[in-house]
Write a protein that binds this DNA or RNA. Sequence first.
DNA 1: GCGGTTTTGTCACGCAACTGTCATACAACC
DNA 2: GGTTGTATGACAGTTGCGTGACAAAACCGC
Lengths: 224, 224
Amino acid sequence: MTDVLVIEDDDRIRLALLLALEDEGYRVRGVATAEEGLQRQRQEPADTVLVDLMLPGLDGFECIRRLRRDDDVPIVVVSARDDTHDIVAALEAGADDYVVKPVAIKELSARLRALRRRARAAPDPVPVLTFGQLEISPDAGEVRLAGQSVPVTRTEFRLLCELAEHAGRVLSRHQLLQRVWGYDTGDERLVDVHVGRLRQKIEDDPGNPRHLVTLRGLGYKLTR
Amino acid sequence: MTDVLVIEDDDRIRLALLLALEDEGYRVRGVATAEEGLQRQRQEPADTVLVDLMLPGLDGFECIRRLRRDDDVPIVVVSARDDTHDIVAALEAGADDYVVKPVAIKELSARLRALRRRARAAPDPVPVLTFGQLEISPDAGEVRLAGQSVPVTRTEFRLLCELAEHAGRVLSRHQLLQRVWGYDTGDERLVDVHVGRLRQKIEDDPGNPRHLVTLRGLGYKLTR
DNA sequence: GCGGTTTTGTCACGCAACTGTCATACAACC
DNA sequence: GGTTGTATGACAGTTGCGTGACAAAACCGC
């Protein structure tokens, strides 16, 4: 398991980062100031730190320097400022990478992985999408129900991932045919059959689905 | 003194990079194609490689994979394409950093310094990857099962390491062909055969594999 | 170089699992 | 109650995978 500490004063951004990283499989913690971050890192060291530059009180550069003084932990700056001076200063201060907000979570995650590989820290975690008791891990090709691994076929898995990726949104049979099967046209009943089979496996009561719901006339959606 | 190899097909850009890096105090060399780059790096290893993604012939991604196969050299992608997909793919292929052209030379230089600091700081420990009874030490080239050394062939070993490095993740036959054999295309059954042979050696009951699992339609993965 | 040994890649076969189709039964809506 | 849309069980064709056999290639000690 991999721990990430996020130091970011904007609550919304911090929360978004934490949630996204959690989905990517990291164990996360967040603080709003450099002082808290330094303290937290001493008490309970994470193995990667994300830090904003513009922080109230102690600024990001100083925060990096102090983190670096204690520790060799990989540090990634996540900043709104896209300015060579800042980038150079942050890296000079001891950061390992610098990304500019807004950043795609996939990119951030890939950069964390690359950095972790280089730093020879803990192996990268496998992302998991959670829907109550139901856990889907696209990278691991695994579906678990209440901790128990559930065997699903390739088509079922793709279907489930597609639904999970757009969790909470309805996907029409047509969309699913396109995205899962790559068919531009075809019998939409095919989708029904596979949804049915999937329900047998992942729903406690397949007749009364909790997660994989039908929206009559619209399609299917996956809910939490 | 630091040696940098620049792989970039555009003469003007390559020259500009080389001159700028020279000014920054690096010892530099440049080539225009991936093939030349790989050869040059074998003959006269630089301690950092800058590579463009869009190269004639062998593309940048493949170039990165091949560099990485021989070597742990820090790799920075310098590309005109600012696309999450490319960034993730490049980092995934083994790059350490990705910067978008045009890049301020000061920033590039700072990133190179940060990367070199990190690369130097972790002088190859000999990690042992453990999967229950199964131990793999990539650097020592050894596989042990319940303490007993197991003789595996080079191909089997590479395959196993590749799987171990991405423990818990599915790797498709295609990915394995690429990463272990370096084939861009080829018969994917080859992978099956080697997986089978590997199982004979490292699984108690090769018919019911505990670690090297098949995910029908997806590929193989190594689990704990 | 040379002969033997190990490793590697190709092939064919057989089994088991999966897929898509269809027919029928069921539920929701008007 | 009729109509439309959805669920489900059965089935046959297909696909994907494991395996053993074999020949080419690489390796190795001499």
